[in-house]
């Protein structure tokens, strides 16, 4: 707000005081929101770190198992067993609110299957196929969980960033400018008051 645009009136000063009060309240709330979001972010970050580790671990296990299955059953046997599964996993997307930030909540269905649901017979396959299938099911589950965590983290980060920008704008621009404008009006009003006093004194002296 350029000072030249400020009308040095008492009503403008009252308006400005109201704006300053509102901005300071908004600033405090946003600061609290930012701190709250940062706290939430660190909580999610911990979980996301764990999920990442889990994915790595499960990825390694799944690939070890598929190598083993290829060794025991051959790629032909593994492909034949993989062909047996028809039902694909489905994802259900829901919304969750963390301090005003809408984050996804992913619910997966038909990722983990029982022996009967996998579509291959017990008599024509060996247990290495079960163990491989179960290792990959666990990996897919971990990936889905990680997707939820990472999207939450990304959304929280975006919100923290924009809240931080708002807090900074209020702290370093809006409130100081409003205060400056208020000081300017006060100064101008004082000056006008002094002018008026001098003018009155002069008139009084002339009349006397």
């Amino acid at each position: 707000m350029a000072l030249k645009d400020v009308k040095p009136t008492r009503s403008e000063l009252i308006n400005l005081k109201k704006k300053i009060k509102l901005s300071e309240r908004g600033y405090n709330i946003l600061k609290m929101k930012r701190d709250g979001l940062i706290l939430e972010f660190f909580k999610v970050l911990e979980e996301a770190k764990e999920t990442r580790g889990e994915i790595l671990e499960k990825y390694e296990r799944a690939f070890e198992m598929v190598a083993l299955a290829n060794t025991v059953e051959g790629a032909i046997g593994v492909k034949a067993a993989a062909m047996a599964v028809k039902e694909s996993p489905t994802l259900d997307l829901k919304k969750k609110n963390i301090m005003g930030v809408v984050v996804p909540e992913i619910e997966s269905q038909a990722v983990r299957k029982t022996l009967a649901e996998r579509g291959y017979g017990v008599l024509g396959t060996t247990s290495v196929i079960d163990e491989t299938a179960s290792a990959f099911e666990e990996l897919v589950e971990a990936i889905i969980h990680a997707a939820e965590m990472e999207t939450t983290m990304k959304r929280l980060l975006d919100e923290i960033e924009s809240t931080k920008r708002r807090v900074n704008a209020l702290e370093f621009k809006v409130i100081p400018e409003l205060k400056e404008a208020g000081d300017f009006i006060k100064m101008r009003l004082d000056e006008m008051e002094r002018d008026e006093l001098v003018r009155l004194k002069k008139i009084k002296a002339k009349n006397a």
Binding site: A84, K86, E87, A116, E117, R118, G119, Y120, G121, V122, L123, G124
Partner: peptide, 13 residues
Amino acid sequence: SGSFARMENELYK
């Protein structure tokens, strides 16, 4: 059902 598991077991039996 989309699953040939039972058929597979029955064939082996």
